[in-house]
Simulated assay, not measured.
Amino acid sequence: MQSDMTGAGRGGRRQAALIRRATARDGKRLTALVRKSRAYEGPYAPMVSGYRVGPDYIETHRVFVAADETGAVLGFYALLLDPPELDLMFVADSAQGRGIGRLLVAHMVAEAKAAGIEAVRVVAHPPAEGFYLSVGARRTGTVRARPPAVMWDRPELVIDTN
Rank of each mutant, 00 (worst) to 15 (best):
1 M>T: 13
1 M>C: 12
2 Q>F: 10
2 Q>V: 12
2 Q>C: 10
3 S>P: 02
4 D>E: 15
6 T>G: 08
6 T>I: 15
6 T>F: 07
7 G>T: 04
9 G>Q: 07
12 G>H: 07
12 G>E: 09
13 R>M: 13
14 R>I: 15
15 Q>K: 14
16 A>W: 11
18 L>T: 15
19 I>E: 10
20 R>F: 12
21 R>P: 11
21 R>W: 08
24 A>S: 12
25 R>V: 11
26 D>A: 02
26 D>I: 02
27 G>Y: 05
27 G>Q: 02
28 K>R: 02
29 R>P: 00
29 R>F: 01
30 L>I: 03
30 L>G: 02
31 T>M: 00
33 L>Q: 02
34 V>T: 05
40 Y>T: 07
40 Y>F: 15
41 E>N: 02
42 G>A: 08
43 P>S: 07
46 P>Y: 09
61 H>F: 14
62 R>H: 15
63 V>P: 07
65 V>M: 06
65 V>D: 08
65 V>E: 08
65 V>Q: 06
66 A>P: 03
66 A>V: 10
67 A>M: 04
68 D>S: 03
70 T>Q: 10
70 T>S: 14
71 G>D: 10
73 V>L: 08
74 L>C: 07
75 G>E: 03
76 F>K: 05
78 A>R: 12
82 D>T: 14
82 D>Y: 10
85 E>P: 07
86 L>G: 04
87 D>H: 13
89 M>V: 09
90 F>D: 03
93 D>N: 08
95 A>H: 03
96 Q>Y: 09
98 R>S: 10
99 G>N: 09
100 I>K: 08
101 G>E: 14
102 R>W: 07
103 L>S: 12
110 A>T: 14
110 A>M: 12
111 E>Y: 06
111 E>L: 15
113 K>M: 06
115 A>Y: 00
117 I>D: 00
119 A>M: 01
126 P>W: 07
128 A>R: 11
128 A>F: 11
130 G>Y: 08
130 G>D: 13
131 F>T: 06
133 L>Y: 07
133 L>M: 10
138 R>P: 00
138 R>Y: 04
139 R>C: 01
140 T>K: 01
141 G>P: 00
143 V>D: 00
143 V>N: 00
144 R>I: 02
146 R>A: 11
147 P>Y: 01
147 P>C: 02
148 P>G: 07
153 D>G: 04
156 E>Y: 06
157 L>I: 09
158 V>P: 02
160 D>S: 14
161 T>M: 06
162 N>W: 08
